[in-house]
Design a protein around this nucleic acid. Structure first.
Lengths: 228, 228
DNA sequence: GCAAAAGTGTTACCCGTACACCCATGC
DNA sequence: GCATGGGTGTACGGGTAACACTTTTGC
């Protein structure tokens, strides 16, 4: 006996991307203005349907690449939303992904889409269940950021301690003591202090650091746990 | 301009359930022997296709109900697996769910399915990507168990401290000091100590406890965080 | 009376947190 | 020389982890 697949319904399945960025002070989210019905003109997450010859991960990368031109973006699958009437015109399941991108690298946003960075503390109401998706994504971002060194995806290759602290303060929406934060980071021992200084923020200048990915991986293999 | 949904492919979407149980000593997983091709006779997770008029959550509950007769099972969505050739005969996406059930309550497993409880430390190789699903589910179970009082789903309504400790030792695959464990649990202050004793395990007998869900919810609302 | 599991407190160490002053430089 | 942000060390307290003996009772 072989199972007959023709008796089972088939579904439209999309991906929707929650794209996070960081401008040095605040967490940002990249939204697009819909240029088709339904809900044309309203703000939404960037999304697209999953094709026959791509996985959902690939679909999400494709969607992001179409919008930003970037490749190999940090991307993680979140949830699958399957409410029957989550979209009014058809039953569409959607797998949400969150992406972390460095705003500075992201020079050219495809003009075909009216996309805009919004402050995560203050962005418009989105279509369908996209607000729920964003809420879930923020929670996941916080969880991940506390146990994995994903914050560096949001920064440039070189950054100051102040940048890093600002980033974590934005992610967790909390203020930290400078001395405690720095000694915590130094205790992790996964940064390289360069000889260079960032002179834009002060007269003294502040040292630039890089994330030492090789060292991190080595320590991981030895049982090290990132924790912040 | 309206988007034309007919141009997009439709997909078979299934749910697969990782069903955890606890026998007082070890974590168990409920597996079924496939009675249809492909891979007939091999062990797999219990699954089923998502219908047109049900959400994935509902499909997972339906699948579990079909197998065990139980209703309102603790269930959480895990991941969506979308590799194109994850099943050999057709492209099928699968949303995995993990379920926690009390083995003792689960008196009648549907005889239509050859289902069997296996020790989580020692169960057969499963079909397709089901082993990966189980691995992911165990990790999620550990994360959840450390921050939510989900362990009680796996125990009977009344349980001894020893039961609880055995459960957490099984989940985290670690040994704990009895005194430290008990004082940690007592500090949480979310259990009710009953007058009854379980006399089966010793001559002295050990007190039975119940999870105080109302108290837990009240404390949650006041900012309490479960942590173990 | 003895075997077998239940139940119970104290101490030491570590980590997290609070906290304030000097440094380097451009203007 | 002064204003601005950068960089550094210590002390205290709370919580976690290590640790052993007494109690109960059925046989």
């Amino acid at each position: 006996m072989t199972q007959d697949y023709y008796q089972y319904p088939r579904h439209l399945v999309a991906v929707d991307c929650i794209i996070f960025g960081f401008d040095g002070e605040n967490l940002k989210i990249l939204l697009v203005e819909r240029n088709f019905e339904p809900k044309m003109g309203e703000w939404s997450l960037m999304g697209g349907f999953i094709g026959d010859n791509e996985t959902s991960d690939e679909a999400a990368q494709r969607v992001l690449n179409t919008l930003t031109g970037l490749e190999n973006i940090y991307l993680e699958q979140l949830n699958c939303y399957t409410e029957i009437h989550r979209e009014p015109t058809a039953r569409i399941m959607s797998i949400s992904y969150y992406a972390l991108i460095n705003i500075e690298k992201n020079i050219q946003i495809n003009e075909k889409y009216s996309a805009k960075w919004f402050d995560l503390q203050n962005f418009p109401t989105l279509i369908f269940d996209h607000n729920e998706m964003v809420k879930d994504a923020v929670l996941r971002l916080r969880r991940r950021a506390s146990t994995r060194p994903i914050g560096f995806e949001l920064l440039s290759e070189k950054f100051t301690m102040k940048d890093l602290q600002n980033l974590y303060e934005a992610i967790f929406n909390e203020q930290y003591d400078k001395r405690n934060f720095i000694s915590k980071i130094n205790a992790l021992d996964i940064l390289i202090k360069t000889e260079e200084k960032d002179m834009t923020s002060s007269k003294k200048g502040s040292y630039l650091y890089r994330f030492d990915e090789d060292k991190y991986k080595k320590k991981l293999a030895e049982g090290f746990m990132f924790k912040i």
